[in-house]
Amino acid sequence: MKIVACIKQTFDTEAKIVVGGNGQISDEGVNLIVNPYDEFAVEEAIRTKEKNGGEVVVVTVGGDKAQEALRYCLAMGADRAVLIQDAAMVGADSRAVSIALAKLLSEKEAGYDIIFTGKEAVDDGAAQVPSRLAEKLDLAQANVVTALSLADGKATATCEIDGGSEILEMALPALISAQKGLNEVRYPSLPGIMKAKRKPLEVLSLSDLGLSADDVASKVVLAAAELPPARKAGQRLTGEVDEVVAKLVKLLKEEAKVI
């Protein structure tokens, strides 16, 4: 099987967000990680290969540092990596990213059986690329997947939906977006880290893909970022339990008017 995992390098979830003077979010001194949901995607891709044979190709769109994220996935057990890197992709919107990925996967890396992504990235929280990519590639998709089985060229996926879950069946190739719970992500072993250094990592520009900067011009533009209004600590209620509880209920009812 040819198995593809799409990943994004994101800020560590513990990162403190600083908005620079230009109204854009600063990445200075921020620890970068593989988007946590994408780790589930890579893990599932590797498990799929371990079960069915084949190769795992991990792909991303990003800058120089994105190579570190790809190497991490190679250390986990992916076979090779492709980085789409182009000045025109800096600050690209979800549409542009899915156009670039779709072009890669429909031409240079065509012939895949299954594509894994995370259900969303923890930075922009847009959750757009999986659906956009599925549409661009005309694929069946299962989103927010917590369980997956593959057999006879078909995928059966359990998807989290609001208030419950549903089971979807589809023929391969298909796109699966991973949710926490799909699997337990492995740590790269030390021998895996050593091997990762020698695995192929290809860097492609837009022109290598046959795209121009105009093809990926963003439609969604961040005018300015701002920090949310800080929440202030409110009242501390103290005293005997009964007293505190009575006070709390009265405040919720009369002051906050939420019950």
Binding site: I33, E68, R71, Y72, Y187, P188, I193, A196, K197
Partner: peptide, 15 residues
């Protein structure tokens, strides 16, 4: 080095 960075990331995550 790449190797040392990955070691750090992996060991920190595991720990």
């Amino acid at each position: 080095s790449d190797e040392e960075r990955m070691m750090l990331q992996m060991a920190r995550g595991f720990a």
